[in-house]
Each structure stands twice: as structure tokens, then as C-alpha cells.
């Protein structure tokens, strides 16, 4: 048998062809050359298929947004990108929100300050005691020293040690911590949820008090209180919003559309009920439902219509 070309060399040539095909339609001579190349070894077509599929898949990079800056992703330093770097993600609205000012929304007569985030905005609020609060989209809090009321929305609390316990109240629930990092979410029509990332907290709700440790989640509705363990990876996904992203893991398209509605005034309407039940996974720019819809339309072969601030996904006409 003649010296066999290595699989690596096959990949090199496959990449070259994929790049040439990407440039534009092949000339007749190119086509002939490609055919000759392909027929020369049974691995080549497969390698080309892979090269093209990977390259096509990289089209998802559009979701990185026009202001994408690769620099923060380079370092293998394992340190998560600084907030400043994260501005690269998803562009405008998020970037605006990350300007970490302590611009108070208003000072109430009780000496508490209110802070709110716009839709599509992520906002960091450093407190004097060294604690930090990150507000997710469309959220509002009132802060008075180490007492915080979550009026609506979702926030991450990174509590620094202090003389007083740090207390967060939301709806009929209150959380107490000395040092911990946790998320509280209070969205109308949903159970109030608390997830602990680090440390221990004590939660009091209508039914009593309990302790939660890292990776534990509690959902409290008027009817019931539920505690479950969250996998570390799932917790990371739950916090993707801090980077201006939304992570799905098997949610239905309908749920995904509702989630996107929290982050922008773009409306995502799924017209086909079967499609609405399809599960999705992925990481998406929170303020870019159009990219999401585009990926979904490709993946499910659905029709995509964009009209002003409305995106419709439906069955493809047959």
C-alpha cells in the first residue's frame, strides 16, 4: 500500500476547500479539481463535510454581537472576565447597564435608597459595607444599610461580612446571611426563589425557617415550599444573566420566549403549538431574541418573520 496521507493532512486540505467554497461559487476548473481530490481517498469527503459543518456552526458567532471583543476570552487564567470586559457581550443595553455607578433612583423618607434596572439592563450596586448587589433585568430594590427589599425582579447578593446580619426580603419571604452569595428572584405569577452559590443562609417563609447551603434552591409559593439541590453547572447557567446571556437547558420554546420577554421589548411569538413544546438548549445573548429565533428556525426548520418589534416563528409552508 502506498504511503497513506495522514488524517491530519486530509483535514488540512478539507479546511482549504471549505475556505475556498466559502469565498464564492467554484469555477468549473475548481469543481473538477475538487472532484479529483474527493475521489482520491475515501476519507476526504467526510473530512470536508466535517469542516463545512463546523464552519457553518460557527455562524452562531453572530450572536456575539457586532461589538464582540475576543480579548476577555483569550486568557486561560480561569479568572472570570471582569465586568468591564463583559461589556463585549451582547452590546448596547447590557453595556449601558454595567456602568457600575451608584446612581440612586430616589431617596425615600425612611433613609432607604431605591435602585432599579431597565429592561435588558444588568446593574451592579456596590454597598458601603463591601457587599455587592447585581440587579438582573427589570428589577427594583430598596436598600437601607444591610437590609434590602427586593421589590421585583431578580438580584444576586454577594454579602461581605459585617456586624449586622444581611437581610433580604421579597414577598412573604426573608433571607438572613452573614457572608454568602445568593440569588433571589421574585417575578409576578411565579414562586419566589432563592438559590445559594456560596455560604449558608437562613430563610424564613410562611411555613417557617430553614437553612440553605451552597447549591441549594428553594421555591416558595403560597401553596408550598420546595427545596432542591442544584448542580454546579446549572447554577452557572442560572447566573448567565450577569454576562448578558440567557442559558437554556431543555426548556420549551414557549418558556424560552417568555424568558426573552424579560430582557427586551422584542416580542417572540411561536405560532406553531408543536414548535412551542420543542426543547432548547444553548447560551444566547439576552438582548438579542432575533439571533435566538434565527438559530431556532434553523434548528427546527421553522419559518421566521420579523416585523418591527415582533418576531414570529411558525411552521414552514409546505
Amino acid at each position: 500500500m502506498a504511503e497513506r496521507e495522514t488524517s491530519r493532512a486530509v483535514d488540512d486540505a478539507a479546511a482549504a476547500w471549505a475556505g475556498r467554497i466559502d469565498r464564492g461559487p467554484l469555477s468549473t476548473a475548481d469543481n473538477a479539481e475538487l472532484e479529483t481530490w474527493l475521489s482520491g481517498d475515501p476519507r476526504r469527503l467526510g473530512a470536508l463535510a466535517r469542516a463545512q459543518a463546523l464552519y457553518d456552526g460557527s455562524d452562531a458567532a453572530r450572536a456575539l454581537g457586532p461589538q464582540f471583543d475576543p480579548a476577555p476570552f483569550k486568557a486561560k487564567s480561569a479568572v472570570r472576565p471582569s465586568r468591564r470586559n463583559l461589556i463585549g457581550w451582547g452590546g448596547g443595553a447590557v453595556a449601558a447597564g454595567l456602568v457600575a455607578g451608584v446612581g440612586a433612583l430616589g431617596v425615600s423618607s425612611y433613609g432607604s435608597r431605591a435602585y432599579a434596572s431597565q429592561r435588558g439592563e444588568v446593574r451592579l450596586i456596590p454597598l458601603e459595607d463591601g457587599s455587592a448587589i447585581t440587579l438582573n433585568t427589570d428589577s427594583k430594590i430598596r436598600v437601607r444599610q444591610r437590609r434590602v427589599e427586593l421589590v421585583r425582579g431578580e438580584a444576586l447578593f454577594e454579602v461581605a461580612k459585617g456586624e449586622q446580619p444581611f437581610v433580604v426580603s421579597a414577598d412573604a419571604l426573608s433571607v438572613m446571611a452573614t457572608t454568602a452569595a445568593f440569588v433571589v428572584k421574585a417575578i409576578a405569577g411565579e414562586p419566589v426563589s432563592v438559590v445559594v452559590r456560596e455560604g449558608r443562609i437562613s430563610v424564613t417563609d410562611r411555613r417557617g425557617r430553614l437553612q440553605l447551603g451552597a447549591n441549594q434552591q428553594m421555591d416558595a409559593s403560597p401553596k408550598q415550599t420546595q427545596v432542591e439541590t442544584v448542580a454546579p453547572a446549572a447554577l452557572v447557567r442560572r447566573l448567565a444573566w450577569r454576562e448578558g446571556k440567557i442559558a437554556f437547558e431543555g426548556e420549551t420554546m414557549a418558556q424560552a420566549a417568555r424568558e426573552f420577554a424579560r430582557y427586551s421589548d422584542m416580542r417572540l411569538i411561536i405560532e406553531d403549538p408543536t414548535l412551542a413544546q420543542e426543547p432548547v438548549s444553548g447560551l444566547f445573548a439576552a438582548n438579542d431574541p432575533v439571533s435566538f429565533a434565527r438559530s431556532a428556525s434553523q434548528a427546527f426548520g421553522a419559518r421566521l418573520d420579523i416585523e418591527g418589534r415582533t418576531v414570529r416563528l411558525g411552521r414552514r409552508p409546505t
Binding site: 452562531a60 458567532a61 450572536a63 456575539l64 475576543p70 476570552f73 426543547p279 444553548g282 444566547f284 445573548a285
Partner: peptide
């Protein structure tokens, strides 16, 4: 084939792009 887009896809893609030589990038 239940799920389509890897949850880390964008992130890993961004990393892959970040690792490319400057002009290529």
C-alpha cells in the same frame, strides 16, 4: 435529538476565536 445548541456553544466559540492569530481573528 432533543437538544440542539450546546449551552456553552457561544462561549466556546468566543474562546476559539480569541485563540486565533490576530489577522486570522
Amino acid at each position: 435529538e432533543q437538544v440542539l445548541i450546546d449551552r456553552d456553544e457561544l462561549h466556546r466559540l468566543a474562546e476559539a476565536i480569541a485563540e486565533m492569530p490576530k489577522k486570522t481573528q
